[in-house]
């Protein structure tokens, strides 16, 4: 399991990274998904542009959160700022791989790799996160990078006072990819319910705002996914997440 030959370029800044990219390049951040794929020779870039040395910060400014794309998942997990203001992210990141992979894996890598089972994407969608790109563009919702474009940061708005959140997942074993997961954020005048791999459950959110029971709202969220057992999982996890976030 050794990768096919490739060129390796270390980028010290986002500008250098953009300049080094061409049509046949891949960006190396934490490498926890890309490197195994390269080792299996399923992905064979001509050039690897390593951005892991570009500093990434977790910052709060005027109540809003900004996370640099190269911030390690482990840093996210131990951040007191995130634990205090956006606990959903800490709850979600604990389901991403194992401590060893989180020490290398980055939040930006998770978002750009866009595995439908990526727990962090599910949580960020529930938080109405915005993705800042090297081109200056900012994107809400599903991220599609253009040629030569890089994700540089993720911005998350402040939550209202008394907001509650919950992240509930079912995986076969601790640390393996979840078969299903649900992120819920409940604020006084907002309800967010994101289903792993399926995005926001608008109907379930409306039902919660209208006072429907957790069980009834969960049934609406389950309609987003295919397969009867998958639906049963999403329904149960949504119900639990709503209850954990204080909705009966």
């Amino acid at each position: 399991m050794k990768p096919a030959p490739f060129e390796y370029v270390v980028a010290g800044s986002w500008d250098e990274a953009v300049a080094a990219l061409d049509g046949d390049s891949r960006v190396l951040a934490g490498g926890q998904s890309l490197v195994p794929l390269m080792n299996q020779r399923l992905v064979r870039p001509r050039r690897l542009v390593d951005i892991s040395g570009i500093p990434g910060l977790i910052e709060r400014r005027r109540g809003a959160l900004r996370i640099g794309a190269t911030v390690r998942q482990a840093a996210l997990e131990r951040s007191t700022l995130i634990a205090g203001g956006w606990p959903l992210l800490r709850q979600a990141v604990r389901h991403v791989g194992h401590p060893a992979t989180r020490a290398r894996g980055t939040i930006g890598g998770s978002v750009v790799h866009a595995d439908p089972r990526a727990e962090l994407i599910c949580a960020l969608i529930a938080l109405d996160a915005r993705f800042t790109l090297s081109s200056g563009r900012a994107v809400h919702g599903p991220l599609q990078l253009g040629p030569g474009e890089l994700l540089t940061a993720i911005e998350v708005p402040r939550l209202q006072p008394f907001a509650k959140s919950a992240f509930v997942a079912y995986a076969r074993t601790s640390g393996s990819f979840a078969d299903a997961a649900v992120a819920v954020v409940l604020e006084p005048d907002r309800a967010a319910d994101a289903v792993l791999g399926a995005g926001r459950a608008g109907e379930a959110e409306a039902a919660v705002r209208a006072g429907a029971s957790a069980t009834d709202a969960a049934a609406l969220a389950a309609d987003l996914v295919d397969g009867d057992h998958h639906r049963a999982l999403v329904a149960e996890l949504t119900r639990r997440a709503l209850v954990e976030a204080g909705h009966a």
């Binding site: 500093p55 910060l57 977790i58 910052e59 709060r60 400014r61 005027r62 109540g63 911030v71 840093a75 951040s79 007191t80 700022l81």
Partner: peptide, 9 residues
């Protein structure tokens, strides 16, 4: 390594 900055506090 600088990991976190809270400009508000």
């Amino acid at each position: 390594v600088l990991e976190e900055v809270d400009h508000d506090t």
